[in-house]
Simulated scan of single mutants.
Amino acid sequence: MLEQFAPSDAVTLAALAESHGFSGVMATDHFQPWVPQQGHASFVWSVLGAIGERTEGDFGPGVTTPTFRTHPAVIAQASATLAAMYPGRHWLGIGSGEAINEHIVGQYWPEAPERIARMFEAVEIIRKLFTASVAGRDVRHSGPHFTMESTRLWTMPAVAPEVLIATAGPVTARRAGRVADGLITTDAPIERLQTLMTRFTEGAKESGRDATKMPKVLQLHLSWAPTDEDAMRNAVVEWPNGGMRFSRSDIRSPFDLEQIARSVRPEDFDGRMVISADPDVHRAHIQRHLDLGFDRIYLHNVGRNQAEWLEVFGREVLPGLRA
C-alpha cells in the first residue's frame, strides 16, 4: 500500500517479499492516503518501474483509474512501456475510482453509473491502442466521455499487457467478462464472491472465451502481529477504512475520513478482515479463496510490521497453500 510507505521502502519490501516466496506485487494508485496517519501517496508508475528492476515476478497497479486524473491513452502508454521493459510480467488493473484521488483535478464527480461507463470506455480506448500498436497502425476514438486523435503507442511490446477490470458488483463483473482479460476484486462474503465469479464466467462465455483461462485476482486485506491485541491495534490505527461498512467512493479528503475513523471499533472488522496472530487462521482463510477459483491472491498486511510479517508468512503460510 503506497499510502503507508515511502516509495523506496515499498520497493525494498517488494524485493524482501520475493525473497520469502511471494511471486508478485500489486501497488495502489492513490493521490492521497485514506487517512493522514498512513502518511504517503507516491506516483505508482514510478514505483512499479523500480519494483520491476528489483524483482522477477509479476506486478501491476491495483487499480488505476484512467478516467479523471489521467486520460486513458496516457495510462496505455505507461503500461505498454513497463510491459516492453519487463516482458510477460506487467499487467494493467483498471477501476472506476474514488473521489479522494480523482476529484483533485477539479472535475465534477459523477454518480456510480457514469463512473462505470467512463471506465469501460477507457478500457475500450486502451485495448484499441494496444491492438493497433502491436499491428503497427494508428487508431482514433470519439466517444461520449473521451476523444483521442489518430495515434499509436510507439513503444509497444510484442504482446500487450493483460487488462484486468476491478469490480465488486455482479453486473459490472459480467460486462468485464465480455471485454477484459481478467477480473480483480476484494474480499467479501463467499456467497457474494461466488456470484461475482459466475457473472464473470457468463460474460466471458458471451464473448466466446473460456473464463477458466482468464486471471481472477483477489486483493485480501489482513492484520497479523505476534499477538491478537497488536493485530487489532494495527487494524484500528493503520487501516480504519477496513472497518467502515459503507462505500467510501464519494469522500474527498483524508481529513474527512479521519473524523469518520474515530467511530471505528474492533467489532466493525468482524466478517470483513481476518485479524489474528495465528498463521494457520490466515492460511485457512486464503485457502478458501483459492478453492473458490482465484488464480492470484495479493495479500496486504495492514500494519507497519511488514518485514516480520513477510518472514512469518513465507515460512508458515505460503508453503501450506494449495493452488
Rank of each mutant, 00 (worst) to 15 (best):
T147E: 15
G320R: 07
W309L: 09
T172W: 04
F120G: 05
E258L: 11
I94G: 02
F313K: 00
G97V: 07
A277K: 08
D58W: 11
I297F: 03
R265W: 09
D138S: 12
E98M: 09
P33K: 06
G97Q: 06
K205H: 14
D250C: 08
A168W: 13
L164I: 12
V11C: 04
G177D: 05
A84N: 11
T67W: 03
T55E: 01
L193E: 04
N301H: 08
F43T: 10
T28A: 13
S249N: 15
T155M: 12
R252E: 13
F269E: 02
R322G: 11
I286S: 01
R272V: 10
D187Q: 12
F130K: 01
Q37C: 10
L193W: 03
S96A: 15
V35N: 02
P113A: 10
V139R: 01
G243R: 04
H282E: 08
A10N: 05
D181E: 07
S142K: 13
H289P: 03
E202S: 07
V123S: 03
A112Y: 14
R233A: 15
T227G: 08
H103C: 11
A132W: 04
E98S: 11
E111C: 09
N301K: 06
G49T: 00
K205Y: 09
P226V: 12
D250N: 14
R265F: 11
R127F: 04
D9L: 15
I75T: 13
A122V: 07
E3G: 12
L153W: 02
H300W: 14
L290N: 08
F68D: 04
E53A: 15
R178F: 06
A284Q: 14
A83P: 00
A160W: 02
Q219V: 13
L92I: 04
L164T: 01
L310Q: 08
I100L: 13
Q219W: 12
T155K: 14
D58P: 06
S150D: 13
L257E: 05
A99H: 06
V25G: 03
L183W: 03
I184M: 12
N241S: 15
T185E: 01
P170L: 02
S276W: 02
R288A: 11
Q219S: 11
P61C: 06
T172K: 07
V134N: 08
F5I: 07
A225I: 09
G57Q: 06
E98G: 07
F294K: 02
M1G: 14
A225T: 09
F146W: 06
A10I: 04
R322V: 14
G293V: 03
I286Q: 00
L318K: 01
S207V: 05
V317C: 04
R152C: 12
F31R: 10
L220W: 03
I275Q: 02
H289R: 15
L310R: 00
D138A: 10
I275M: 04
R89F: 07
E149F: 12
A225Y: 08
S8Q: 15
S79M: 05
T67P: 07
S96Y: 11
G320P: 07
L290P: 06
G169I: 09
P66D: 04
L257R: 00
E53G: 12
V179N: 02
G203V: 00
P33F: 05
A231G: 08
R315C: 10
L92Y: 03
A78V: 08
L318R: 01
G60V: 03
